[in-house]
């Protein structure tokens, strides 16, 4: 699976304003709603579901990366977005560091395979330290999109 298969380009945010966990999630789900990827009426439900998943263990996986995710019936295919918070946000991460880079995923309840493949793709791509670093330094949604494209292209050629 590639980033382009599930990352919605219009909802990428390079400058998150949020300063705590819930508002990060709120801002990112809001971006998905704005782009028409999720129903505005489901907005709150999705945020709740993601926060509930966070309680089982933070999706802050270290290196300044977090991958909040959930399943939710309001989507009929996997949708995701990327956001960068230049200042970093406390996300109860594994390593205690602030998180600058967020991938948020919402998948339909009946497609567990896609959900895992997307998480796998993200964690595999982030093993590339440069990719991770460049993403965090991105100043615009456009830069982020390009980096994702490049990562997809590498995956393709390898």
């Amino acid at each position: 699976m590639k980033f382009s298969d599930f990352i919605n380009v219009e909802s990428i945010r390079a400058q998150l304003n949020a300063s705590d966990k819930e508002s990060v999630i709120r801002e990112m789900v809001g971006a998905l709603a704005e782009a028409g990827q999720v129903q505005s009426s489901d907005h709150e439900g999705i945020i709740k579901a993601i926060m509930k998943r966070e309680e089982l263990g933070s999706t802050g996986i270290g290196r300044g990366v977090a991958v909040p995710h959930t399943k939710h019936p309001s989507v009929d295919h996997l949708v995701g977005t990327v956001a960068v918070s230049p200042a970093g946000v406390d996300f109860n991460s594994l390593d205690g560091e602030k998180v600058q880079l967020f991938f948020l995923l919402v998948s339909p309840p009946d497609r567990p395979g896609d959900h895992l493949r997307a998480l796998e793709n993200i964690s595999r791509q982030l093993r590339d330290g440069m990719f991770c670093k460049f993403l965090k330094q991105s100043k615009s949604a456009e830069e982020i999109r390009q980096l994702l494209d490049e990562a997809d292209a590498n995956q393709f050629s390898s």
């Binding site: 263990g57 933070s58 996986i61 290196r63 990366v65 991958v67 594994l94 998480l119 993200i122 982030l126």
Partner: peptide, 8 residues
């Protein structure tokens, strides 16, 4: 090397 998700 692999990123892992912490779980309770």
């Amino acid at each position: 090397v692999q990123l892992e998700f912490p779980l309770r």
